[in-house]
Measured scan of single mutants.
Amino acid sequence: IRCIGVSNRDFVEGMSGGTWVDVVLEHGGCVTVMAQDKPTVDIELVTTTVSNMAEVRSYCYEASISDMASDSRCPTQGEAYLDKQSDTQYVCKRTLVDRGWGNGCGLFGKGSLVTCAKFTCSKKMTGKSIQPENLEYRIMLSVHGSQHSGMIVNDTGYETDENRAKVEVTPNSPRAEATLGGFGSLGLDCEPRTGLDFSDLYYLTMNNKHWLVHKEWFHDIPLPWHAGADTGTPHWNNKEALVEFKDAHAKRQTVVVLGSQEGAVHTALAGALEAEMDGAKGKLFSGHLKCRLKMDKLRLKGVSYSLCTAAFTFTKVPAETLHGTVTVEVQYAGTDGPCKIPVQMAVDMQTLTPVGRLITANPVITESTENSKMMLELDPPFGDSYIVIGVGDKKITHHWHRSGSTIGKAFEATVRGAKRMAVLGDTAWDFGSVGGVFNSLGKGIHQIFGAAFKSLFGGMSWFSQILIGTLLVWLGLNTKNGSISLTCLALGGVMIFLSTAVSA
């Protein structure tokens, strides 16, 4: 259960009878995928790494000078000259100064003066180019299975845990398959586009800190620079940016070097996208990844198990997540596992009318040892309800109150669905055939309105939902006002479609 501690969480529900669903994975976010007769899966884009970055340009932001020398000439005696002028490691300046009897010249006039100092770069920052084909995306998957609280967001041991898996995709191999043991396998067909235009970005490294910066900004930095990788004795261009020549006297000129420019660069980098280094690879934390999940090989585990009949206890007080759902960790005293956990939410304890829904599909106890633990997640209705676990006299209950409203949740879900469709863009549509167009249209309606429909009408039977949709269509056909007619027709059509397409 990876997503319960992530604030940016998206719930995606598969269409009834569908074998695939489109998701948008982004750094700092987590996606929970639910479908009829399929286990619930949490998917998170953990890291995006980039390798084989080529150094484009380096800037010196802290330097020192040494070996200063000057040469001067009297008027009419030609130009002052130093051998160091031809050495690229030196920074030199030529000027004219007033000369006369007082400073060793027989004539009054302008004399030539040249001053040089050896330039040494102490600290530099480097910009590297990123090729999209060198990106690698690491995705962690977790099935809502027989897990306890100690396994949440624990990325170790996934090789031997059938509840978890790690997959890596690249532009050259965008397809992967996550093996989930008894739950089958989940196929991923990803489109490795981060949403960032790397043709316009460089990877900047300064003092063990890293950013993504725009090329134009990078090339306009007014500091000494050299092109390409460091060859040991780089040729620094624009050395004068960190060196200041003071007022010249008759035979000498003082040279000083400016202080470190790291603070000024940090100020200019305010708002830039931060990154990290992992050995020789860069780690990015921006952008998104679009994936199509193929769920035809994914299956529920323990459908044929019998119900657990022994007593359950709450190991922890049920807690609310950031998303309005409830996490419950229970301990089973029996030894008759594997068995299914009898769990439901009810409005009252007399009729036990089921409300809400299970995020953890078909929760089971897989071990036959005593005191096995299991964590599950529920989506309670707004208002008061009861969490009921167990059967008969051994069942345990917990009162729950959820604040908020169904309308607010439906609106929030619609906005999130619209954002998801905007990110998917043209990849969500198939114009290759008439059937493809209608299929894409259905998927689009489901992406945007599916979660809201589930919130508003999830407790009704599909037949009642179709009746309401048919009534809206009838009202649309018999209303003389054009805008009201079109609105009723659209709402009725969407409702009829979703009542037959969205899983219960």
Rank of each mutant, 00 (worst) to 15 (best):
T353R: 14
G104F: 06
A178E: 03
K118S: 00
D67T: 00
G14V: 10
A264D: 09
P363R: 01
C116N: 08
G324S: 13
I396M: 14
C116L: 02
K251Y: 02
R416P: 08
A80V: 10
I4E: 10
F108H: 07
F382T: 05
L298T: 02
E276H: 09
E177L: 03
A410K: 10
K209D: 07
T115P: 03
P224H: 05
M206V: 15
V21H: 01
V255R: 00
V330Q: 06
C488G: 04
P342M: 11
H219D: 02
I4P: 02
M125S: 01
E168Q: 03
D220C: 08
G337W: 13
M125K: 09
K290F: 05
N163T: 12
C3L: 01
W225V: 03
K246C: 15
T19N: 06
T335G: 13
T351S: 08
R94C: 08
L307C: 03
P39Q: 01
R252H: 09
R299K: 12
S66E: 07
S433Q: 04
E13S: 01
V502S: 04
R94L: 11
D230M: 09
T120P: 00
F497E: 12
L25Q: 06
A504S: 13
A452K: 09
C121S: 04
K239V: 03
H214S: 02
G279C: 01
A361S: 02
R420S: 05
L269Y: 10
A501K: 13
Q36S: 10
V317G: 00
V257M: 11
Y59Q: 06
Q131N: 03
S142K: 01
G106I: 11
E276N: 02
W429R: 10
I1M: 15
F183E: 08
A165V: 13
W462V: 09
T479G: 08
A63P: 01
C190I: 06
H148I: 08
C116A: 04
G259C: 05
R94K: 12
L204I: 07
V31I: 12
A117G: 15
T32L: 00
Q261H: 00
G334Q: 06
N163A: 15
T48V: 14
Q147R: 14
L491E: 12
Q253I: 04
K84T: 04
S306H: 15
K166T: 14
K443F: 09
S455I: 11
G228W: 00
K316V: 00
N103V: 03
D296W: 08
M349F: 12
V169P: 02
V317N: 13
Q253G: 05
G78A: 02
K215Q: 15
D67N: 14
F411P: 04
Q331Y: 04
Q465W: 10
L273Y: 13
N163C: 04
G493F: 03
D336S: 13
R402V: 01
D230L: 14
Q261W: 11
Q447V: 14
C60H: 07
L223F: 03
R73K: 15
H210D: 04
S464K: 09
G444R: 00
V50N: 04
F314E: 03
P39Y: 09
I484A: 10
R175D: 09
G469Y: 03
G263N: 11
H398W: 13
C121Y: 09
E216N: 07
A504W: 13
G187C: 02
K290C: 06
L223H: 09
T40Y: 06
D220L: 03
E274S: 10
F431P: 06
L293P: 09
V388N: 09
G14L: 01
V388P: 00
E159Q: 15
K251F: 05
G100A: 08
S483K: 13
L242F: 08
V473A: 12
A176Y: 09
G181Y: 03
L300Y: 04
M125Q: 04
A361Y: 12
K283D: 01
G356H: 06
G390M: 10
S16Y: 05
L212D: 09
V388D: 01
C190V: 05
Q465V: 01
I221W: 07
K394S: 13
E216H: 05
I139A: 02
G184N: 08
T366C: 07
S433V: 00
C339N: 08
P222M: 13
V213Y: 09
V24D: 07
T267L: 11
H214F: 09
L475E: 07
A490L: 13
G145C: 04
M421T: 10
G444Q: 11
L25G: 05
V256F: 14
P192V: 04
K395W: 06
I1F: 03
L269W: 12
D155Y: 12
G150N: 14
N439E: 05
C488T: 10
K123N: 05
T179K: 13
N154M: 09
D67H: 12
G390H: 06
A410L: 02
E79Q: 09
A270W: 13
N207C: 05
I221P: 01
R416C: 04
K124N: 11
K297N: 12
G259L: 03
L293S: 01
S260E: 06
D336T: 13
I139S: 00
E133P: 02
I4R: 01
T194R: 15
L376W: 10
Q253C: 11
P222A: 13
A413N: 01
V143G: 03
A165K: 12
F411V: 08
H266F: 13
C105K: 05
G100F: 07
R292F: 01
L188W: 09
D161M: 08
T115I: 11
G187N: 14
D155K: 02
L186E: 06
I468W: 11
K394T: 12
N439R: 10
K297P: 00
T470A: 15
L82Q: 02
Y158R: 13
T205K: 10
T231N: 15
R164A: 01
E412Y: 13
A333G: 15
V391G: 14
N8Y: 08
K93M: 10
S64K: 12
G5C: 05
K128M: 14
S51H: 14
R357H: 06
N52D: 11
S503E: 11
M374L: 15
M349D: 04
H148D: 11
W474I: 02
Y81D: 11
N208Q: 14
V23K: 06
S70L: 09
E159G: 13
L188R: 03
